[in-house]
Design a protein around this nucleic acid. Structure first.
Length: 277
DNA sequence: CCACGATCCTGCTAGC
DNA sequence: TGCTAGCAGGATCGTG
């Protein structure tokens, strides 16, 4: 499941190979629902002849900006992958969008579960409104202890639920939330406004740390994530809590426990992450 | 503001 | 062996 580090890894690898490149055509749409605000014909008429001027990331959205301020936003949700491949490479199963480029390559959106979405915005303003409505401060570049403290103040929800809320902080998903809570030694069910200043600082540091390490390891390929060259990341070899139910906590040896929080599995060490501070 | 449940999808796995 | 039922999971929406 692509979260911030996976999207950032993809953006970094696509950037040098897409900036300056022109669009020749759009094809392969076999699932109109993945285009909530556009269509194959709309994409075709809007993007043909346009050149990519930037490849960016906001939260878990990958953004391709073109030379007339048109913007394509891709959210990969659970299983979506963006592959940059030679035109001659056979299409992978579950390919739902193909963008033909004048570099001889194709940018292909492949998504087995069809949860992924591609949006087209006709101006920077339209795009920014869309994102502002959904995304809080970016958990990698904007989140600091003071900001986290002010956002947590008065919030009665569970800590884990809030971390998954993209309007609270953008970019953290289930896997990195569990890893950050493990590192900060905080129980996922802690009431959000019960954290001490020191705990908030630990959490802010942990979030930045797990995301940064995730990027350095080119993402976590827990199930389906692949980078734009179709290669897995390495961070799955370094997980401390996520997916490790019953296995020893790397810090204290206590078996990792799994509970359900906000309808999502939550992995934590019952020894290092006590429910009561 | 918060919690909970349903929804969307399909590959995988556990269980029979 | 082969089948099926159930699970996972990000975001959104409706209800309480």
């Amino acid at each position: 499941m692509p979260e911030l580090p996976e999207v950032e890894t993809t953006a970094r690898s696509l950037r040098p190979r897409l900036v300056g490149v022109g669009v020749l055509g759009i094809s392969g749409i076999d699932w109109p629902r993945m285009l909530p605000n556009t269509s194959e014909a709309d994409l075709q008429s809007t993007l043909c002849g346009k050149h990519v001027v930037s490849v960016d990331r906001r939260g878990k959205y990958l953004l391709l900006e073109f030379d007339d301020d048109t913007c394509l936003a891709v959210h990969r949700k659970m299983s979506g992958n963006l592959l940059l491949q030679e035109r001659t490479t056979p299409l992978a199963l579950h390919t739902h969008l193909v963008i033909d480029l004048d570099s001889g390559c194709q940018l292909r959106f492949v998504d087995a579960r069809k949860f992924g979405r591609v949006y087209l915005f006709h101006s920077r303003e339209e795009r920014d409104d869309f994102l502002a409505q959904r995304l809080g401060p970016d958990s990698l570049i904007e989140l600091h202890a003071a900001l986290l403290a002010s956002k947590l103040r008065g919030r009665k929800g569970r800590l884990k639920s809030l971390l998954l809320d993209q309007a609270f902080v953008a970019g953290v998903g289930n896997l990195y939330a569990d890893e950050a809570l493990w590192e900060a030694q905080l129980h996922p069910l802690r009431p959000a406004d019960s954290l001490s200043a020191e705990e908030i600082e630990r959490l802010a540091d942990a979030i930045r740390n797990v995301l940064t390490l995730g990027i350095e390891r080119r993402g976590t390929s827990f199930s389906t994530y692949l980078d734009s060259d179709g290669l897995p990341g390495e961070n799955q070899d370094y997980l401390n809590a996520y997916g490790r139910e019953g296995q020893p906590c790397p810090r204290c040896g206590t078996p990792i426990r799994r509970i359900t929080v906000a309808q999502r599995s939550s992995h934590f060490c019952p020894q290092c992450q006590p429910a009561i501070a």
